[in-house]
């Protein structure tokens, strides 16, 4: 659980997380937005289905992999939020699509 400092600046950025609207802030990464939204996890692993959340926030652990605008396995901590962005949690293995 994380909370925003009361005097932080930055414009609201409207995204959806698994279809639900959320106002992130300008400068947030997707992973930061998920934590700010109170999401306890962002994916289930391909191996055992265990729940995972962002761990390193600097692009090295790959635990914050999410689907962004329909593209899977994006590193949430290295992707910045944009207005209208669709963020989805991942469940198990990615499926190949035609």
């Amino acid at each position: 659980m994380f909370k925003r400092l009361p005097d932080t600046q930055g414009a609201a950025v409207a995204v959806t997380i698994d279809g639900e609207p959320f106002n992130a802030r300008e400068g947030d990464s997707v992973a930061a937005a998920l934590l700010a939204a109170g999401r306890s996890y962002c994916r289930e692993t391909p191996v055992t289905g265990a729940k995972r959340a962002p761990y390193c926030m600097m692009g090295v652990c790959f635990d914050c992999l999410v689907t962004v605008d329909g593209i899977g396995n994006r590193q949430g901590c290295l992707t910045r939020v944009e207005d209208g962005m669709r963020i989805e949690t991942q469940h198990g293995k990615r499926e190949a699509r035609a």
Binding site: F2, K3, R4, L5, G10, R25, G27, D28, A36, M57
Partner: peptide
């Protein structure tokens, strides 16, 4: 990182 880039602190 969350503090520096997003002004987030653990709650």
């Amino acid at each position: 990182t969350l503090l520096k880039s997003s002004g987030l602190v653990p709650d």
